[in-house]
């Protein structure tokens, strides 16, 4: 569907050249939700803009549906853009237009029969759940509602690909969840390929099938979300996974517990899918002399089912503790021992 080969983007200015994106190879399959995560300045904003040629790459090849984007003439590019829509962090709605008129905007740009516009807008308003707000102006809407308009507008031209540029970063957690649900919903209903960039790991965890981690313009790691979540290889990836599993206040608790039970071992368990949903821990606990001290944890939803982490302290003899760890690993639980 989308194929990037050795793509690079260099910005040249008087003060020198900045390599925003370098040597990126990426394949995104039809119908998948693909996440790109990185901190600001990692080049992810530039990368997503290369996909609809809002930025032209300095080198490399970008193909969407077999069409080489870099060799399109301006007119052809405008045509392709109707097939590759974009949703923005700050919504970028026209404040001078109502909800309806904003959604109608792409339809007015050409290629859509006039008579069917109203009908199409009504469908989209229904789809994104904005019934009753048709005549409102953007200034009268909440952030979440504005993003729903942004999504409806992006879907108006019936695209195959939806690019989300930090689509939830300006929203509060609850609204973020509802927008993410909407994205999953349209991904399934419309068989839409979604590419999203974010700096928040929970967005990736919740809705993406695959993820690429970006650092300094390069993709340092990529793979299925559960896989990357369980076995993060690069330091950057580990940091993002940690965002999700271990809030900083855990560190304090760890320090206290280490002091109190010097022989105890703190371990981090990671469960994915069915392992997260079965009572593995209880079974291991049942016939072991080791004491389990549960410190904290969380379970989140992902495309492959539940995704959970748990921090426990194992208090007991070294051999017995080791046996517990082996048993857990045998039940497909990822175990990471804290060695401090």
């Amino acid at each position: 569907m989308i194929r990037l080969q050795d793509v690079g983007k260099i910005y040249r200015s008087k003060r020198g050249a900045v390599e925003a994106v370098a040597n990126v190879d990426l394949t995104i399959e039809r119908g998948e939700i693909f996440g790109i995560i990185g901190y600001s300045g990692a080049g992810k904003s530039t990368l997503i803009r290369l996909l609809n040629m809002l930025e032209a790459p300095t080198s490399g090849s970008i193909q969407i549906d077999g069409v080489e984007m870099t060799s399109l003439k301006p007119k052809e590019l405008r045509g392709v853009r109707k097939n590759v829509s974009m949703v923005f962090q700050h919504f970028n709605l026209l404040w001078s237009r109502t909800v309806e008129e904003n959604i109608m905007f792409p339809l007015e740009l050409g290629g859509f029969p006039k008579a069917r516009r109203k009908e199409r807008v009504a469908e989209l308003i229904q789809l994104v759940g904005l019934d009753g707000r048709e005549k409102a102006y953007p200034s009268q809407l909440s952030g979440g509602q504005k993003q729903r308009v942004g999504i409806a507008r992006a879907l108006a031209s019936n695209p195959d690909v939806l690019l989300c540029d930090e689509a939830t970063s300006a929203l509060d957690p609850k609204t973020t969840d509802s927008i993410l649900e909407l994205l999953v919903d349209i991904n399934e209903k419309l068989k839409l390929t979604i590419v999203l960039i974010t700096h928040e790991m929970h967005v990736i965890q919740k809705i993406c099938h695959r993820v690429a981690v970006m650092e300094a313009g390069k993709i340092v790691e990529q793979g299925p979300v559960a896989e990357v979540f369980r076995h993060p290889k690069q330091a950057m990836t580990k940091e993002f996974v940690k965002q999700l599993t271990s809030p900083s206040e855990n560190e304090l608790t760890f320090a206290k517990l280490r002091e109190r039970y010097p022989t105890g071992k703190i371990v981090q368990l990671t469960f994915v899918g069915s392992t997260a949903e079965s009572p593995i821990l209880a079974e291991v606990m049942k016939d072991s002399p080791v004491l389990f001290n549960i410190i904290g944890g969380n379970v989140g939803q992902s495309q492959e089912g539940a995704l959970g982490t748990l921090f426990i302290q194992l208090i007991g003899e070294t051999a017995a503790t080791q046996a517990v760890i082996t048993k857990l690993q045998a039940s497909d639980v990822e175990v990471e021992v804290d060695h401090r």
Binding site: L54, S85, L94, W95
Partner: peptide
């Protein structure tokens, strides 16, 4: 006029003239 809105219009395949009379003028009115 918010640059993001112009970028959005561009991403939807608007021509330069459409950007002028459908985005810039109404938004700056």
């Amino acid at each position: 006029v918010n640059k993001g809105v112009i970028e959005a219009a561009e991403s939807m395949g608007a021509t330069k003239f459409q950007i002028i009379y459908k985005v810039l003028i109404p938004e700056a009115l």
